[in-house]
Design a protein around this nucleic acid. Structure first.
Lengths: 239, 239
DNA sequence: TCAGCTGTGTACGTTACCGCACATACCGCC
DNA sequence: GGCGGTATGTGCGGTAACGTACACAGCTGA
């Protein structure tokens, strides 16, 4: 019988060299990641890092007036808590579960031990971080130049890529918070995509029907980010 | 007599531990960084990294249609070419000199040798990278939520911090390219700051007269970024 | 079965910024 | 000392997204 949860459902964990596996496996604790759970708070020191398998986590900045904007989105391909091994221990952003699912957690101190040994683990985590940086940079570009319609397409594609699925459990209100726009704006943009037959949705469930057309309507930002993730973290990568 | 150029004018170099100094100094070549010089191009493998001392370098993404947006700005406090030690060798962005000045360059292969030894050099560079990440993230937030007036204030402050000066040699056209807005928009915003007595400018020279008020008019993004740089890279840091 | 909550749809005036066009001002240079 | 190029100033119609208000629709549980 297959295990309830497999550590290799997280791509970074799956990329670890065989020789590392023994050090990691006993210390990876499965965790439930329910909608809204805050994995780390702005300015707080991290106690754990997280490796999502089926959840989507948003890194976002919450402004003084309470409005927010997403900086990046992380799923099975990544890790939550890069500031730990980058040496800052905290960041001004917050990590929140945007789509419920599962994952694994690892004690911060253990991750640091494994990271500080250098070698393949260090290089893998840094390559991942560079991919994440690209996503952040492209978010900045996209926020500046592209229409809400384009951004919604990009966001849907990026998010779905991170759970390997066609369906997203997410309200328009939440999407609006992520994109940093009005909920009504998302309703209108989603309505246009629906009318064009690209997506379906009812009460918090969005399904993509036509991925190709969605990519076509998206801005170049999606392709730039996807290409960079594929380049830096090829699924078949031998670490 | 003081040296024409001092390697310790770059803050990262200045933070290197004494023991490292011998390995670095003979390999740091002084370079001129004239306005418009491209230090690396999107997708190209880096041959050198750069440590600015008096120049300002913009990391920007150039879109398919030719318009651009700044992702981050780097000066004497940093290094150009993080993708090298992050392991990607290239990035989808471009690095361009926005304010002429000087700096030092180091061969990519040498930097990698020094980085791969691990220890304080590695940790210093990673901490710097985290500060840079914060700047990028905040750029995304700022692009989404803040007015051009606020963004101009933020941008002036960030840029001036990076050359330790009150005067910037830069046309409004260039600033517009960086912010990803129309030149006319910058003219209007700058006009308002001028009218309020906060800045002076004529033909490509901008002088800040009232820094406090400029900070007050800026959005919170400037303070967030500054605080994070100060936290991660304190000038008095013992590496 | 109906009440109540959450999620979605629609409308309307407002605003910040855009694109374009053109006027003016400054500076270096022959 | 006038000329040409670059930098800045201004005006005007257009538009994407905003803030606000409210209607409706679907699920859930008393």
């Amino acid at each position: 019988m297959a295990p309830i949860a497999d550590q290799k459902d997280n791509q970074l964990l799956a990329m670890l060299p065989e020789s590392e596996w023994g050090h990691w496996l006993p210390n990876l604790e499965p965790v439930d990641l329910p909608l809204g759970k805050v994995l780390y708070e702005s300015g707080n020191t991290l106690t754990h890092v997280y490796f999502p398998t089926t959840a989507i986590i948003s890194l976002l900045y919450v402004m003084e007036d309470g409005s927010s904007a997403e900086i990046a989105v992380v799923g099975y391909e990544g890790i939550i808590g890069i500031s730990l091994f980058m040496g800052g221990e905290s960041t001004p952003s917050r990590a929140v579960v945007q789509s419920a699912g599962k994952g694994f957690q690892l004690k911060a101190s253990l991750l640091m031990q494994l990271f500080d040994k250098g070698g393949p683990v260090l290089h893998l985590l840094l390559r991942y971080t560079q991919a994440l940086i690209t996503q952040m940079a492209q978010t900045a570009v996209c926020n500046r130049h592209h229409t809400l319609d384009q951004q919604l397409c990009r966001w849907l594609l990026l998010s779905l890529d991170r759970i390997r699925s066609n369906e997203l459990v997410m309200t328009q209100e939440l999407i609006a918070n992520m994109l940093g726009v009005r909920r009504e704006g998302v309703t209108e943009a989603a309505g246009r995509l629906h009318k064009a037959g690209l997506i379906n949705y009812q009460r918090g469930h969005i399904t993509v029907l036509n991925r190709e057309e969605l990519e076509r309507r998206s801005c170049e930002c999606y392709a730039v980010v996807k290409k960079e993730y594929d380049r830096l973290l090829p699924a078949t990568m031998a670490v």
